[in-house]
């Protein structure tokens, strides 16, 4: 298969997933406001969990679990985005 531009772009996305353990674990903007203004306690837990907090369950190393979650998520989204775009494809285009 010939190397196409989007192979490079997808590789870049997967590379970012590998960097994910380096991300800041500080609360994000909304969480910070919720903590400061005293309504963080009103948050409800999700009714079920698959890969909560971007950490693959059952993996001992948290860094590896985070990378796996990132790669799985990026591949799922590539598939969904690509598939959706195909469904929306212009008539008559190959």
């Amino acid at each position: 298969m010939k190397f196409k531009w989007w192979h490079g772009a997808l590789t870049l996305a997967l590379f970012l997933a590998i960097l994910s353990p380096l991300a800041s674990s500080s609360p994000d903007g909304l969480e910070r406001v919720a903590e400061d203004k005293g309504f963080i306690e009103t948050a409800l837990d999700a009714p079920y969990e698959i890969i909560p907090d971007y950490v693959m369950p059952g993996v001992v190393s948290e860094a590896v679990a985070t990378i796996l979650a990132g790669i799985v998520g990026a591949l799922i989204l590539f598939g969904i985005g690509y598939g959706l775009a195909r469904l929306l494809k212009a008539k008559g285009e190959a």
């Binding site: 772009a9 997808l10 989204l77 590539f78």
Partner: peptide
């Protein structure tokens, strides 16, 4: 492919 890559 752009839409797939962007989502990922």
């Amino acid at each position: 492919p752009l839409m797939g890559v962007l989502a990922a």
